[in-house]
Design a protein around this nucleic acid. Structure first.
Lengths: 181, 181
DNA sequence: CACGGCTTGTTCGTTGAATGAACAAAGCGA
DNA sequence: TCGCTTTGTTCATTCAACGAACAAGCCGTG
């Protein structure tokens, strides 16, 4: 899907940062990946949480699958789900760095979210190392908690679900799929 | 300058990552900041190294100055220079993570660039911690070295200067400004 | 001072992507 | 079978990126 238009890319740049931005640097793409870490997997959940045009979401998801960042799998209820691959999970340091910078310079009410080690409850530093047990924690073992800077005026099911502590990468229950098989 | 158009932003997203992408997430912006770390400071050097339209470069530089990521200073020879602020230097983890991911997944010939501690020569790990002396190294003390994956077919003065080891944040000598006052 | 070149932009027409609404196909339960 | 939900596609409009042409300021030189 989505043959990338010529000259809309960074091919003149011989640089690993430019190559990465080629894949994840387009508008909305990193927010899609952020939501994937939060446990969003379904087309309609991305749609309502991001407020993105359907055509753009469809194109971005297709590109990310093509690049091997997301995988399209058959989920419960017969619906397709978009899930981060190992290659996608490896983007965690990028998102963590972006979030930390925003917390430091664009978040007057304090951090929007904080991270803890799911197993021992310890707080995680800027490289996801647990301050209690000292281990470097994999994304699946990170507990995401709402922080002081998180406002409460978003009404969509994804935002509502994220107001409770939630483990990264585990599927969100958004109500549209509350029934379990 | 450059009043940001309504609805072209991520204001619906209450998230520090989205706020960061609001500032640095537009096309070309992170590559401009990357070049700033490499020591590029002048309009014409950004222009030739990035191959970006002048109007876009002008708009991006103005935005970054407005956001406090870059500062516009009077450099040698009476020319203006765009220099990273402390807020801008704090973006180093973002760029480092993007580069590392590209090296890991998009660079079959090996890393494009490597980093060393300028003082002791030790190699730096993924958080710029020196493997020799153990300290976490500030960007100004990082020595950038061309890696195996760096091709040699770019002919502009900035690319040529970057084929030699170079300390981050120190101004590049591009030949156009070789004469010192 | 006049001149010409270099640097640093701005302006403008064209191209291409994002947007939002309307339309469409496929699965599933009643 | 019918209707609803999900997952898209299509289309006209709006906006940004592109590349070339134009322009202002500074500099050294004659």
């Amino acid at each position: 899907m989505a043959v990338m238009a010529l000259r809309r890319d960074y091919t003149s740049q011989v640089c690993s940062m430019a190559r990465t931005l080629e894949i994840v640097g387009e508008r909305w793409t990193l927010l899609i990946i952020r939501d994937s870490f939060f446990g969003v997997r379904r087309f309609s959940d991305f749609l309502v949480h991001l407020g993105i045009p359907k055509a753009v979401l469809s194109e971005r998801l297709g590109s990310l699958v093509d690049w091997g960042v997301l995988a399209r799998e058959l989920g419960r209820g017969g619906h397709d789900e978009y899930v981060l691959t190992e290659k996608g999970v490896a983007l965690r340091p990028v998102l963590r760095a972006l979030g930390d910078w925003g917390d430091a310079f664009c978040s007057p009410d304090g951090p929007v979210r904080t991270y803890r080690h799911h197993d021992c409850g310890g707080r995680l530093d800027d490289i996801d190392q647990c301050e209690t047990c000292g281990r470097r924690v994999a994304p699946a073992d990170i507990l995401l908690e709402p922080g002081a800077g998180l406002s409460t005026d978003a009404t969509d099911p994804v935002s509502a679900a994220l107001r409770s502590p939630h483990r990264l990468l585990t599927p969100l229950e958004t109500g549209s799929r509350a029934r379990v098989s």
